[in-house]
Computed example of a mutant assay.
Amino acid sequence: MTPDQYCQEKCATSGSSFYYSFLFLPPARRQAIMALYAFCREVDDVVDECNDPALASTKLAWWRMEVERIASKQATHPVGLALQAVSPEIEISAARLNEIIDGMEMDLQQTRYLDFTGLSLYCYRVASVVGLLAAGIFGYRDAQTEKYAHDLGMAFQLTNIIRDVGEDARRGRIYLPIDELKQFNVPAADILNARYSDNFTALMQFQYQRAERYYQDALAHLPACDRKSQRPGLIMAAIYRTLLEEIRAENFQVLHQRISLPPTRKLWLAAKTWIKG
């Protein structure tokens, strides 16, 4: 199996909505974005699948060394080799790869966030940085597109947090800020024990509105000259925003289940968005 095949399989088997936006790209850009996504999956899996925080920290340190090896063209892992082989016209900086690892390390260091300021740093590292790298892979001419990529990454991560409230709670994590739980009078125990209430629904509506604002701001900041090149991001936005609306339509019943869109609907949204341009 070649490094590119490894990355493609990593993307395809993840079940992520992002995979559907990659299918429409030309080969060089598709290989680059799949290598980046595979890197994100590898470091995220370290945190999600390793029960020993010390061991997970050691593994993330190994990935930091692999980032250095990628930069010096001495990568050893299939994902590192794939990133190393990315076309010179496409920049995937070591600094930003390390920022993604910084975000993963936050999951090892804390399971709660006092306020949105702290949570937004986490979202920036694990999602907005990826968005900025992805925007570079897709190609853009106007620097304003970086604002679009940042806000879209925030919107995606906030959607993930809303979708995964119950799943994260079963892992002992609550990403919803503590001050907002208090504001809406939702005890952490309700989330950890999957207890619904009117207060919980109001809290989630508040989270929904924040995520929706990020989608609106992102799309408002995308310059017309870069809209065509950024269509993969627009595909992701169409899928994730539809998922967010689906969660809202289900009255935020996210404590006992993981709401998702079927693959056929994702593919339909992807094709529709690509054709629309």
Rank of each mutant, 00 (worst) to 15 (best):
T2E: 06
D4Q: 15
C7I: 06
K10G: 10
C11D: 03
T13I: 01
T13A: 02
S16F: 01
S16K: 03
F18T: 07
P26V: 09
P26Y: 12
M34G: 14
A35M: 04
L36T: 02
D44Y: 00
D45E: 12
V46Y: 01
D48N: 04
E49T: 12
E49K: 13
D52M: 07
A54P: 13
L55N: 10
A56G: 09
S57Q: 02
S57H: 05
R64F: 04
R69S: 15
S72N: 13
T76Y: 09
G80E: 08
L81A: 05
E91T: 14
E91R: 04
S93A: 03
N98K: 13
M104Y: 04
E105N: 15
Q109V: 15
Q110L: 04
R112C: 07
D115Y: 03
Y122P: 04
Y122M: 12
Y122D: 09
A127P: 05
V129E: 03
V130A: 06
L132C: 07
A134Q: 00
A134Y: 00
G136R: 02
R141E: 14
Q144V: 14
Y148A: 08
H150T: 13
L152T: 09
G153N: 05
G153P: 08
I162H: 00
E167Q: 03
A169E: 05
R173C: 07
L176N: 09
I178K: 06
N185A: 15
Y196P: 10
Y196R: 15
N199L: 14
T201P: 15
L203H: 02
M204Q: 02
Q209E: 11
R210H: 10
R210S: 11
R213P: 10
Y214A: 08
A238L: 07
A238V: 13
T242H: 03
E246F: 01
I259N: 07
L261V: 06
T264D: 15
T264F: 13
R265D: 14
K266N: 04
L267S: 12
L269G: 04
A270L: 05
A270H: 01
A271Q: 08
K272V: 13
K272H: 11
T273V: 04
I275F: 12
K276W: 11
K276C: 12
